[in-house]
Amino acid sequence: MESTKDTLAEDADIDAPAVSLRGWSLSGKQGDVFTDVDLEVPTGAVAVVRGPAGSGKTSFLLSLAGRMKVSAGEGRLGDLDIRKQTRKVRGQVAVGHIGGLTDLEDDFTVAQHVAERQIMLQPWYKPWASKSTLREVIGLFRDAFTTATELIDDLPPGTFSKQDAQRADFLIDDNGEVFVSELSELQKFFLEFGLASLSRPPVVVIDNIDYLRESADRARAWAGILIYQQMRRSRDPEDPLTVIVSCEDSSELDIATSSLGSRAEPSVLELELPPHLPAQRGSKH
């Protein structure tokens, strides 16, 4: 396969890379999955990994998250060697959505999912989550949506509206008693993203945002990512969030950025993965 190429917006304001790859490659029994990827993602940026189905996007994100071993190359997550320090990398890269890995339980409530994630983040000797802790965490989620709504209210007419934010507000009640089965796909997306963000990780990876079928929902999802990223940067400039998202088409990101304007202006980097060509029988690799 050919090497990938990337372009970086000139407005990146943090020079230190969150992720740095050189010759990053993965091969399997069926041939190359991705090969010879050179990439630097600045801290606090949005990296868009584009490619058709079967181009290795999911495997690429899993390799960045320390959940899949590559065949060759050098990779660093900040000061960590991705290949040699996978356990620490998994603690620094949260997974916002990967089908089959982050699937929510339809029979669980929002509060139960929050409690489960909270317990995972606590010391082993505290295998429970108090009601007060759950209310506090759910309150943080609600505050995020309130802030997003306020931001959207200040936008010029004809862009995102308050109804756009309300459509994405999955927290129907203060106690999070709504069941996952009652949520829309967009609401599930934001629940997964919210759960991934609970530990305040430096990096969140999100796979296949195209699974949201409606273009408007994909635009809302991109807007939500950008708004949360900007909120975190504003509250703690020393701890920005880097987001890496895979998709086949990123046109809805353009809609979100043009609608939000300077209120949520990201540094955007785009990486194109070429189509994956299966190995022919009898060929050598």
Results as ranks from 00 to 15, higher is better:
1 M>K: 13
2 E>W: 12
4 T>R: 11
9 A>W: 15
13 D>I: 04
14 I>P: 06
24 W>A: 06
32 D>Y: 03
34 F>E: 04
38 D>G: 08
42 P>F: 01
43 T>Y: 09
46 V>T: 11
51 G>N: 01
53 A>D: 13
56 G>H: 07
61 L>V: 02
65 A>N: 02
66 G>A: 14
72 A>V: 01
72 A>Q: 09
74 E>Y: 06
76 R>E: 08
76 R>F: 13
76 R>V: 00
78 G>M: 05
78 G>S: 03
78 G>F: 09
80 L>A: 15
83 R>I: 10
86 T>R: 15
87 R>K: 10
95 V>G: 13
97 H>N: 11
97 H>S: 04
98 I>D: 01
105 E>T: 06
107 D>P: 03
107 D>F: 06
111 A>E: 04
116 E>Y: 03
119 I>H: 07
119 I>V: 15
121 L>W: 08
124 W>I: 04
126 K>F: 05
138 I>C: 03
139 G>A: 14
143 D>N: 08
145 F>S: 08
153 D>Y: 06
159 T>K: 10
173 D>Y: 00
173 D>H: 01
176 G>N: 10
178 V>G: 11
182 E>T: 06
182 E>A: 13
183 L>S: 12
186 L>C: 04
189 F>W: 14
192 E>P: 00
194 G>L: 01
195 L>K: 11
197 S>R: 05
201 P>D: 00
206 I>T: 14
208 N>F: 04
210 D>V: 11
211 Y>C: 10
214 E>D: 15
220 R>T: 08
225 I>S: 10
225 I>K: 00
228 Y>G: 01
234 S>Q: 11
234 S>I: 08
240 P>Q: 01
247 C>D: 12
253 L>V: 07
257 T>C: 10
258 S>A: 10
258 S>R: 14
265 E>Y: 05
266 P>W: 01
269 L>R: 14
276 H>L: 04
282 G>Q: 07
284 K>S: 14
